[in-house]
């Protein structure tokens, strides 16, 4: 129950950040990616601002013996570079460049963006399920508790 409440709060703050920064608008994101055209560099500061906070905040949090509402941290442990990582990231960038949405902004815009946004979300979920079905379990990025 408390974990769900924490999730709700974190999701709300995350969504507020996406909306306030302008990241939830595909038109702005596409202009950010359009470095040879109508380039809008402001979204660099979104990632910059987020990274400053997480860089410091994660170090403080991971210094604790564990999270407040769970027994362990759930962190990715793999450090090897493999084909699914690079191919997947490359594909993700292509889809991002086509639609202007990455997963966060698409979720936040679910009730505002009309049918095209819902179509994006439907496609995204279908793509994720397809990978889950087709990819051998051993190849999926492992998360091991610490």
């Amino acid at each position: 129950m408390m974990r769900a409440l924490a999730g709700l709060l974190a999701g709300l703050v995350f969504g507020l950040g996406l909306v306030i920064s302008g990241m939830s608008n595909p038109a702005k994101v596409l202009n950010f990616l359009d470095i040879t055209g109508t380039w809008d560099p402001s979204l660099i500061f979104v990632m910059g601002g987020a990274l400053v906070v997480t860089f410091i905040g994660f170090r403080l949090v991971l210094g604790m013996s564990g999270p407040v509402l769970d027994t362990q941290f759930h962190l990715p442990t793999r450090s090897d570079l493999d084909m699914p990582l690079v191919a997947g990231a490359a594909l993700f960038g292509i889809g991002w460049g086509i639609g202007g949405y990455c997963p966060g902004p698409a979720v936040t815009s679910a009730t505002l963006g009309g049918w095209p946004t819902l179509a994006f979300l439907g496609g995204m979920i279908a793509g994720m399920i397809a990978v889950r079905i087709l990819q051998p379990r051993s190849l999926s990025p492992a998360t091991i508790v610490r």
Binding site: A89, F92, G95, G99, P103, F120, M124, I125, A126, G127
Partner: peptide, 12 residues
């Protein structure tokens, strides 16, 4: 775009 993002993020 959504399918490509879904497959890409799941793989990556």
């Amino acid at each position: 775009a959504g399918v490509v993002v879904g497959v890409g993020t799941a793989l990556g």
